[in-house]
């Protein structure tokens, strides 16, 4: 029942690492209140955290829309950043274009997208160079 869905929206600012993580932390506490299964909550917050970091470091920020329904948590991350030229390369473990100053902060291990796929039950990524990127993830809660 999409009408009963709980909808949340977050804006992720660009290039501010101290704030990346706020959306996944907020969503996590809400899912806990809803008493959803711990494993599902864990999957959602790991996947969304990686997504937030990507919005901050690769896309100069972006938007997150969350829809919590009876049986799943759906997350859409969209940005109008530089886009990804080769998605299958971006999806491969360890691949990263993160600049050195970002790596020195401990990000840029190239595991973000692979982990987002691993921890979600549905995963889809669309990207166009110069236009932006949209990642859709869903985690089942039943």
């Amino acid at each position: 029942m999409a009408d009963d869905a709980i909808r949340l929206h977050y804006t992720v600012p660009g290039d501010d690492f101290t704030r990346a993580g706020e959306a996944s932390a907020d969503l996590k506490s809400r899912l806990k209140k809803l008493g959803l299964p711990p494993t599902a909550i864990r999957k959602v917050s790991i996947a969304l955290y990686e997504g937030e970091i990507n919005l901050a470091i690769h896309a100069h920020g972006g938007d997150i829309d969350v829809e919590i329904t009876d049986d799943e948590v759906r997350m859409t991350l969209s940005d109008d950043g530089p886009g990804i030229p080769d998605i299958s390369l971006a999806m491969s473990e360890g691949w990263s274009t993160a600049p050195d100053e970002v790596r020195s902060l401990g990000f840029g291990a190239g595991m973000g997208l692979p982990n987002m796929k691993k921890y979600s039950d549905e995963f889809d990524i669309q990207s166009a160079v110069g236009v932006g990127t949209t990642v859709k993830m869903a985690v089942r809660t039943t």
Binding site: D4, I6, R30, K32, K33, L34, G35, D70
Partner: peptide
């Protein structure tokens, strides 16, 4: 002891959550 959850069945928790918002 799930004291921080809103309590009740899943449907009830969703309802309580909406009301809380």
């Amino acid at each position: 002891n799930p004291v921080l959850e809103l309590g009740g069945t899943r449907a009830e928790r969703f309802e309580r959550y909406a009301k809380m918002e």
